[in-house]
Design a protein around this nucleic acid. Structure first.
Lengths: 100, 100
DNA sequence: TAATCATATCTATTTATTTAGATATATAAA
DNA sequence: TTTATATATCTAAATAAATAGATATGATTA
């Protein structure tokens, strides 16, 4: 549980927003074409559309969030879905509460 | 409660260490010359010595931490003491728990 | 298998952060 | 009232982060 590495991810409004949106994909994203649930998260394109930033920037952001273990990717055909890693998010908040 | 601004402060090992050290000044710093308690925190020089970074860097760090309301400065003669702002730290962790 | 689509990576530019030396300020001491 | 001490601010250099265009990869489709 690296507080500094996770804090670096959270030190950016867009990345914090992505995490918040992924809490409730039904409310924040349109339905996917091939599946009727968000069990594995949301595809990169939807996240990109919502932020208005470039595809490469969002891919970089999601990669950094994945490196910090804050999100989990799952490949579905040509799409990559990202969902929150609730265990790590919870553990981070707990670590702040005790260590900070 | 600005999650991004506070996360920027926590995105640096030295600044996180300073906050941790200030939790227990008795254990982490020598006694002050003029007073025999740490009620108003720890003087800048002691914090600088412990980090090994330059005086101006530590002053900048403490300033950024103060801007984020994470620490509170108090002037005692020619020394400035810094202590944790427990209310804001607690509120930040709570905000993460609910918003993030 | 050629074309297409979604995503990742590479490269480059702009902007922000880190860090320290030099200087300024504010207080205390001689 | 000069001198010393503690801290803050200014300036500048080095490093890192943000961002996007171009290109590559991997999967589907024609």
């Amino acid at each position: 549980m690296d507080i500094v590495e996770i804090s670096k991810v959270l030190a950016n409004k867009t990345r914090v927003n992505i995490l918040k949106w992924l809490k409730n994909p039904e409310a924040n994203f349109p339905p996917h074409q091939d599946i009727d649930h968000f069990d594995d998260g949301v595809c990169v394109g939807f996240i990109q559309d919502k932020t208005g930033l470039s595809q490469s920037t969002i891919s970089t952001y999601l990669n950094s969030m994945q490196n910090a273990n804050l999100v989990i990717p799952t490949r579905h055909g040509k799409w990559t879905y990202y969902r929150r890693n609730e265990d790590v998010i919870k553990a981070y908040v707990e670590a702040l509460k005790t260590d900070l």
